[in-house]
Design a protein around this nucleic acid. Structure first.
Lengths: 219, 219
DNA sequence: GTCTATAGCAGGATAGAC
DNA sequence: GTCTATCCTGCTATAGAC
């Protein structure tokens, strides 16, 4: 809910707008609902952001991108604490950064929902999502993993593997209610930790499969 | 219930409603937009479905579930054409059924969007999605794969693996525009076929990883 | 079953006082 | 910067003619 220490109306609007847009989508949320949640006046959105759409874009620029940066920082810090990290360390670093570190469960839900909504029905914000976060992250992960693989590794296979790893991480972040429901298993920290172990193991075997196939093919 | 085959308007409404709800979400679509797209009268939705929400639910009952059934049929047919199918055949069958067979690209986009929207912000329809499709599919896949694994396989590991496989398939179905954009690679049939090969290979190595770990642990 | 007309209301946006 | 009052558009839903 509203943080009392956030006496800045503009910030409160951004925080509540992000939450509501993520939950319900742009069209389903009214400016009345946002301003009420932010404990501010009906006219505040138009004063601070011009209109509703610009508030939506500001949510991506000022909240979504910084949070993605937070994930990247956690990832780098996690890796920097390892001596000579191998590929498994890297996969664990990504999964942990996204599923445990740097975000509360609510923030993660929020973050993923906003992204998926934007991919399902792109607005202007999709360019921010893809160009400022998804693409740089992909390139960074690829270049981190590549040195540990054979030099003549098929780049397409590697990139598809990274997409696969990301798909697992995003899915287990997004579909927690479904996973819980189907497995009849609460998503508590212990289970989450087993899920991360699973992702790392599954992904490592997948990547090693590429490595092995490439070696076979090039012999 | 009225006989759908004699009632064109009702079917046209369902078809157009599904398309628009999938693209934009429930709130962002007006009944005016749907009735215009279905080339019918503004009052038609209320006549045939009572109200807008009931049209939305009918989309899931009469279009979404049947299409999921179509995927399952394709999957079974694909498998029945193999003699003594192994786990890789099953993974390929699922991926192919979902990413190639039984749906056009547009229908797949539609199908996934509706599901993800419902998971992101559940309405009454989420029960249809989970109980009539996701859970039965999980159980079916699990029981198909299990016989080919060691008897004392950790059931949690197997279920998580199935979620991982599904996450890849859904992701490559949903995020085609992003994958194309990041890889600078059109999603043509050749590439799609390589993606399926990748999913099968990645998943098989992942599953074999479980198998091996279980064997080690039980020795 | 289909259509027109309209009731009744909620939405975004703005003007202008403070 | 904040607030009230208000405009006007667009929405869902319905009544009633055909």
């Amino acid at each position: 809910m509203t943080n009392p220490s956030t006496d800045n109306t503009r910030d409160r609007l951004l925080i509540q707008a992000e939450q509501l847009f993520a939950q319900k989508g742009f069209a389903a949320v009214s400016v009345r609902e946002i301003t009420a949640a932010a404990d501010s006046n009906l006219a505040a959105i138009n004063y601070h952001f011009g209109n509703k759409m610009n508030l939506y874009l500001s949510v991506f620029k000022e909240r979504w991108v910084p949070r993605a940066d937070g994930v990247r920082k956690f990832f780098r810090k996690y890796l920097s604490e390892k001596n000579d990290p191998d590929t498994a360390d890297m996969v664990r670093a990504i999964a942990t950064a996204f599923l445990v570190g740097s975000m509360t469960d609510n923030e993660r839900q929020c973050h993923i929902n906003l992204m998926l909504r934007e991919l399902a029905h792109p607005t202007e914000a999709v360019n921010i999502v893809v160009e400022e976060v998804i693409r740089p992250m992909h390139i960074a992960v690829r270049e981190l993993i590549r040195p540990s693989l054979p030099e003549n590794i098929c780049l397409e296979q590697l990139t598809l593997s990274i997409f696969s790893i990301i798909s697992m991480i995003v899915y287990f972040g997004f579909a927690q209610p479904v996973v819980s429901r189907v497995m009849n298993q609460e998503f508590d920290p212990q289970f989450k930790s087993r899920v991360i172990d699973h992702i790392v193991s599954f992904a490592m075997n997948g990547i090693n499969g590429i490595k092995n196939r490439t070696e076979e093919e090039t012999v």
